[in-house]
Write a protein that binds this DNA or RNA. Structure first.
Lengths: 127, 127
DNA sequence: ATAGGTGCAAAGTCTTTGCGCTTAA
DNA sequence: TTAAGCGCAAAGACTTTGCACCTAT
């Protein structure tokens, strides 16, 4: 067999994530749950967050490692889901978006970044 | 005194970044430069990339650590420059952008993420 | 019964940093 | 001369993983 089973820990972790809008790190989830679940381990939190993210139940929010770019003016990027390559995109920056974000949130918005994803021209032919 | 001085390593690192559009990691920059500069150290690459990014000469491209979100439908985020908090924004997803990105790049675009930044409502009053 | 999940701790990966030497100014 | 910067290696931070035990099915 090769099925997924119910696990109390996974449920706890998922529920914790649903109850909040803080976009927590694995560490944060762990510290929230630990007091009520003293034998929960950080490894389990990581394992389940990855499992949930891989199956699409939750969402990851970062590149795995830091990348750098000498073009400092804001411009969109494309990140290939398959090979991980990052490309620049020649598309106009829309300052109107920042104004909309301010209206929607009240935060003092100084800019934004757009990152597209999918399959890049090199990976497309390879499925 | 407390000034910044010229350094050959910093120049090499910055030039390497300008010559490419690969959005390299620190490791990649290190491996490109190492053959011609056998005593370059990875620590120096990190130090200079951080220095250049802090002064705005280059640009970082990731959150420092991975964050997770139980809302899986695409929606924009706001990340506060000061406290690091991440907020959801209630703004419509624009599929038209994906079509524009395809036209501009030729990549097979399956979606995009928008991340705003600035000062959040809590940090704004604190300067 | 048994395969998936857990806790724990060790290992791995990425990044930062302390220290003594080097070098730009 | 001298303080910024470097190379090196050790430490730190974050994440993954091997293994023996536990538990949903």
């Amino acid at each position: 067999m090769n099925g997924k089973r119910y696990s109390r820990q996974r449920e706890l972790i998922y529920e914790a994530l649903r109850q909040t809008d803080e976009h927590p790190t694995a560490e944060m989830v762990y510290h929230w749950l630990k007091p009520e679940n003293p034998n929960l381990s950080l490894g389990t939190v990581y394992r389940n967050l990855n499992l949930l993210a891989d199956e699409g139940t939750i969402r990851r929010m970062a590149f795995p490692v830091e990348r750098y770019d000498a073009r400092t003016e804001p411009h969109p990027h494309f990140c290939c889901d398959r090979c991980g390559c990052v490309y620049d995109l020649e598309m106009p920056y829309d300052p109107e978006l920042d104004r909309q974000a301010l209206l929607a949130s009240g935060h003092d918005v100084t800019g934004h970044a757009v990152t597209f994803h999918g399959l890049c021209v090199k990976c497309k032919p390879l499925h």
